[in-house]
Design a protein around this nucleic acid. Sequence first.
RNA 1: GCCAGAGUAGCUCAGUGGUAGAGCAAAGGACUCAUAAGCCUUUGGUCCCCGGUUCAAUCCCGGGCUCUGGCACCA
Length: 511
Amino acid sequence: MKSFYITTAIDYVNGSPHLGHAYEKVLTDVIARFRRMMGDQVHFLTGVDEHGQKVQQSAKKKGIPPQQFADEVSAEFRALLPKLNISNDDFIRTTEERHKKVVGQVLQQLFDKGEIYKAEYKGFYSTRQEQFLQEKDRRPDGAWPEIFGEVTEIVETNYFFKLKQYQEWLVEFLTTHEDFIFPKYRQKQVLEFLKEPLNDLCVSRPRERLEWGIPLPFDGAYVTYVWFDALLNYYSAVADKPGVWPAAYHVIGKDILLPPHAVYWPIMLHAAGLALPGGIIAHGWWMTGGSKMSKSTGNALNPLDLVAEFGTDAFRYFLIREMNVGQDSDFTREQFLVRYNSELANNFGNLVNRTLNMANRFHGAVVPAAEVAEDAEKELHALWEKTREEVIPLCEGFQFHTALEKTFFFITATNAYIEKRAPWKLGKSTEAHDQALLRTSIATMAEALRLGTALLTAVMPATVEKINAVLGHSPGGNWRDELVWGAKLTGTKFAEALVLFPRPEKPKATG
RNA sequence: GCCAGAGUAGCUCAGUGGUAGAGCAAAGGACUCAUAAGCCUUUGGUCCCCGGUUCAAUCCCGGGCUCUGGCACCA
């Protein structure tokens, strides 16, 4: 069985989760569920980043220890997962012993190999903001903005990782691994970036400036800073699990692709003698009215509010259907309602309900066997074969939005098939051929519904489970077998009715 | 400034060197199993602009305009 290890980025616990966090979890979960269905041995990791200056500062502001602050915010992120029906196998916090231990080991190993050295760093430092400033922080006239207060040039001794010497190696690696970064054009962006010389990476902060971090094993006066802490979670979480590393994919937001995931991370792994991941998936952002959704703008659309109002699966469906992985998309309540009403409620939910109803009304709720295959049936069979052959490669290539579109095209065609056969008319006829057609049409619509539903499993797992329950169907362990048009439902007994996606109340005129 | 992506129907987006496509929205129709759902039909487009290559360009090439994103120690 093929091992498939997939991760999300770890979320920084300096703010509450918003739509962007939710999306990344859902996207990764859909990939994880899809790979499980394809038979892979999946290990799915997510977690939180709890160290760093901002956590330390926020904790101080609230007058509580940083660990307590991290505990509180982490709990929020963790609580999000079951609400989104995320099937992660593990959840890592960078303050856990298992993580700190591995970070220490890797740092020590690189230090022993001479990959990390001590040097002086000279720069402009803002005491008020407790940070070094960059040239780009200057105002056009060369002065430092007011918020930095007094700025002085100071010299600080720190530890540096020899990033620069691996630049050529990384270019070579990316050139020979064209599919390392998805979408592809991002890989070009990285290679473009690598045309400029790299600097070595500062990996430490003196303890008097930053207490809240993992101490350097070879110098207790320092803690390691950001990337050697955060990025290594992917490895530290599975370091003691043989056969899991390397990761198949890291799913991240496009904002942390360059340079951390596309430059620091491959070089860190290479220098430490660890295998590189199969790839990096950089997804886009949810926008609202043309601006990025963030803490400040995103509060109007709390993902959990939509989950509470419309259900987890409708929310997951929208995120996956609307977003082309890698690109940005707009999120508005109006768009959500359009997809919810027209696709989930009218097209799909209604098909479930009417199928159950017709089986009940015209055949005692028991699914008959199909008896004839005329053009109407043959066309639907052919469309199914086509749909299945298209959807699987699309999912393998992370084109889930198109996969859902194709799936819904098949569901629409099933609705059209029903109209063509009109069982409610056949039911009034006593002719033998009409009766055979009636039984065939019920069997056909039931089988089509079962198959279309099976294609939605990764995106709407709970809904699929509910539908299978009312169809009296227990899917076998092999998903590919479930996708074969056959007679799996013949003889099963349907439940009476099921309204999956109730239409929302009309908004009140006063708003 | 440099690099990358994008510009196609009212909206969101597919797409191919040879008569422009889907979904939603809009209009009409026949039906009634169903969540006033579904189905059928129709309306709707200088394919950003200007040149070039070609028998033929929305697609290829050049130039321009507009929008978006990236440009390192910031999590």
